[in-house]
Design a protein around this nucleic acid. Structure first.
Length: 426
RNA sequence: GGACAGAUGGCAGAGUGGUUGAAUGCGACGGUCUUGAAAACCGUUGAGGUCGCAAGGCCUUCGGGGGUUCGAAUCCCUCUCUGUCCGCCA
């Protein structure tokens, strides 16, 4: 959602954003509707003022009946104007919810991921004198999962880590959480079960109809709840309807939650291995800041994830996503991808996004500026801290030994009881 | 799951149909006083919208939505949330 005033004054910028992001352009309709809405507001407000004036005179008037009749007549007029106003406002509101966020000037312009730009590459894939195994072979031989059994019990796109791999998962989570806490992030264990409104307010969906989420979000039958796809959902609403003091910003959260996704658009993709599930878990970085701090915070969040990659001793690269490859609600986005030997390519492990004031408008999260005392919308950003079990994939593949054992990255060793390797032939 | 109670401005807390955007207290901010501070005193202090070059006017808002009425913080319906007791339970 953008400021209607901004759209009114900068239609060309908005139109351009729709074009480069690949969304339908409703700008002209919005401007027409907006003009009519304001016209109707002016009319109804003037009449309401007139009516209020009469109403106030009634208690002390001698001829009450005349005034009451007059007030009634105006009331009827207002009611008919209000009906049109309400209708037009609903229409306008829906269209406003379909306007994408304006991309940052630095974002590469292009229709899809082919226009993405690699901005950084760190580390080199390790050369081995043995044939490296794919994640599933390592998991199989070490007894670290039981995919067929779990699929039978729980259905497709579920998993269970077992033994040392499960320990590793927990160690990685703990490591990242502790790292973020040390950097001043407030650690929050987030519920995954939430209300649809909170999902909508995170701004991942267009329009004003909450049902648009049905394709992507698990709804819980016979309840008013759904399952969040990320801790971002809850963190995004943590300060809704608040006016924060400027001194409180930036606010940094490290959220951890189970994440539930339908993955409806990914049928047949990544069906093997630990990459794509209906339920996984994730440490999420989330920041509220002043708009002018946003770029700096973006770098900070991105850098944190890069550090995690280095702590996990993974070769990785950073991608600047193009206008057509980033979401509806995003200003700027970078993907961090880790090297996966079995696929001979980099695979996405995390995604850093600047949202501008888009989410803050939906949640009505504002701050009061020092000096001017002006109330402004916050900017929000989010980035993956670490996503699991996906992160297990590059860790076990890049650190495998000839016998199928896996070396534990040094920084994780204390969280793994001091062990340097796990698994391998006994 | 059952039975009650409640939701008012930054906070506390009046107000049960008519100049109430809302008493009072606290807090915050500005000022007077003071060498400085405290105290005391005086004043200011929600947000959103709309019209206007501006000054300023007007509209909305007492948890959300709907209704009754000329008029609603006050009456009715409904939803959400909070509290208390019982039941159940990691």
């Amino acid at each position: 959602m953008l400021d209607i005033k901004f759209i009114r004054e900068n239609p060309e910028i908005v139109k351009n954003a729709c074009r480069v992001k690949g969304f339908k352009d409703y700008t002209d309709d919005i401007i027409v509707l907006d003009a009519r809405v304001r016209e109707l507001k002016t009319i109804t407000q003037t009449k309401t003022a007139e009516k209020n004036k009469i109403t106030k005179e009634i208690p002390t008037a001698t001829d009450k009946a005349t005034l009451i009749a007059k007030s009634k007549t105006i009331g009827d007029e207002i009611a008919s104007d209000m009906a049109e106003l309400a209708d037009k406002e609903v229409q306008l509101n829906d269209l406003l919810h379909r306007v994408p966020q304006i991309p940052h000037r630095d974002v590469p312009v292009g229709p899809d991921d082919k226009s993405n730009i690699e901005v950084k590459r760190v580390g080199t894939p390790k050369k081995t004198d043995f044939t490296t195994l794919a994640q599933w072979d390592l998991l199989d031989m070490n007894g670290w999962w039981a995919p067929e059994k779990i699929a039978q019990i729980c259905g497709t796109r579920t998993y269970a880590l077992m033994g040392e791999a499960a320990e590793l998962d927990l160690a990685i989570q703990t490591f990242v959480i502790q790292k973020l806490i040390a950097k001043g992030f407030n650690f929050v264990q987030c519920p995954a079960m939430t209300k649809p409104q909170s999902v909508f307010d995170a701004g991942h969906f267009m329009g004003s109809d909450l049902s648009v989420m049905n394709n992507d979000v698990f709804m819980l039958t016979d309840t008013d709840r759904c399952l969040a796809g990320t801790a971002e959902i809850v963190l995004n609403s943590m300060h809704s309807d608040e006016i924060l003091p400027e001194s409180a910003l930036p606010i940094k959260y490290a959220g951890h939650s189970e994440c539930f996704r339908k993955e409806a658009g990914a049928a047949g993709r990544d069906t093997r291995g630990l990459v794509r599930f209906h339920e996984f878990h994730k440490v999420e970085q989330y920041v509220y800041c002043k708009p002018e701090q946003s770029d700096e915070m973006h770098e900070l969040l991105l850098n944190n994830l890069c550090e995690v990659m280095e702590d996990l001793e993974l070769p990785y690269r950073v991608i600047a996503n193009s206008t057509g490859d980033m979401g509806f609600n995003k200003v700027k986005m970078h993907d961090v991808e880790a090297w996966v030997p079995s696929e001979n390519m980099y695979r996405e492990l995390g995604s850093c996004s600047s949202i501008g004031d888009f989410q803050a408008r939906r949640t009505n999260t504002r701050y009061r500026e020092n000096g001017t005392n002006e109330v402004k919308f916050c900017a929000t950003l989010n980035n993956t801290g670490i996503a699991l079990p996906r992160a297990i994939v590059p860790v076990i593949e890049n650190h495998q030994n000839a016998d199928g054992s896996v070396n534990i990255p040094k920084k994780l060793q204390p969280l793994m009881g001091g062990r340097k390797t796990i698994g391998g032939k006994r």
